[in-house]
Every structure is written in structure tokens, then in C-alpha cells.
């Protein structure tokens, strides 16, 4: 039996973090939650996830910077951005950098699930809608 996919959740807001973790677990995945981008990056080499769901605006290090750090580490893990303040500019930036998807908060569970499944299958949300 293949191991359950591991989903890393990075958000500085505890409520959101815990809620997203619960949703992910309800889908049958393993959820690991991190309160900051730095915490996640430190754990990454030891315990690489299959997918990352991250906030953008976080104190210390933003989700975008964290993504850049992942790429610098040579990681190809798909990253889904979820932000409370989505702008077109930010969307273009992260997708150009290779993000798997870019979602605005609040977004319904179905959207997150669809995006997550596409990411795990190695595609991106854009491929799915195309």
C-alpha cells in the first residue's frame, strides 16, 4: 500500500492553519502544519512533502520568498498559494515562478481539493482549466 501523500500547510494564522489541516486530513492525506515559512524550510530537507499549501503575507518570510528558497534547494514540490489579498500582479509573479496554483481567501473546500488533486497528479490548475 502506497504511503499517504504528505501535505505541508504554511500559515501564520492559527485558525486558518488548523482548519486547512483538518480539511486535508478529511481527504485522507497526511497534514503537517507550520506557523512560518522558515519553520517549514528548515524541516524540508528531512521530511519533504508531496505538496505545499501556503499563505503569501507572513511576518519574517513571505510565501513567495519561501517558494524561491524551495527552488534554490532544488525542490520540485508543487506549491499552492492561498492569499487573503490576491492581486493580478502577484498571481502572475508566482505562476511565472512555477507555482502550481494561486487561490484567494476565502475559497471553498471544493476548489482547494481540486487544486490539491491536480498538484498531486503533477499538473497544475491551469492545465486542468485549459
Amino acid at each position: 500500500m502506497p504511503a499517504l501523500p504528505v501535505i505541508a500547510i504554511v500559515d501564520d494564522d492559527e485558525d486558518v492553519r488548523v482548519a486547512t489541516g483538518s480539511l486535508v486530513r478529511s481527504l485522507g492525506y497526511t497534514a503537517r502544519i507550520y506557523a512560518s515559512a522558515r519553520d517549514f524550510l528548515e524541516s524540508c530537507p528531512v521530511d519533504a512533502p508531496d505538496c505545499v499549501i501556503t499563505d503569501v503575507q507572513m511576518p519574517g518570510m513571505t510565501g513567495v520568498e519561501m517558494h524561491r528558497g524551495l527552488l534554490a534547494l532544488g525542490s520540485r514540490v508543487p506549491v499552492i498559494f492561498v492569499t487573503a489579498f490576491p492581486t493580478e500582479a502577484l498571481r502572475n509573479t508566482v505562476l511565472a515562478a512555477g507555482a502550481s496554483d494561486f487561490l484567494g481567501k476565502p475559497c471553498d473546500g471544493a476548489t482547494i481539493i481540486r487544486s490539491l488533486e491536480h498538484a498531486l497528479m503533477g499538473g497544475s490548475a491551469r492545465d486542468a482549466t485549459a
Partner: peptide
């Protein structure tokens, strides 16, 4: 402001979705 208001809303929606799933 959006962040501050959207954050709890996001948590509510996600928790609701999770609750339904569970």
C-alpha cells in the same frame, strides 16, 4: 484590513468544509 477580515472567514469556510468531509 482584507487580510484581517478574510483570515477568519477563510478559517470558517475551510472548517465548515472539513466538518462536512469528516
Amino acid at each position: 484590513i482584507a487580510h484581517e477580515v478574510n483570515q477568519p472567514l477563510a478559517a470558517i469556510v475551510t472548517n465548515g468544509e472539513a466538518a462536512l468531509r469528516w
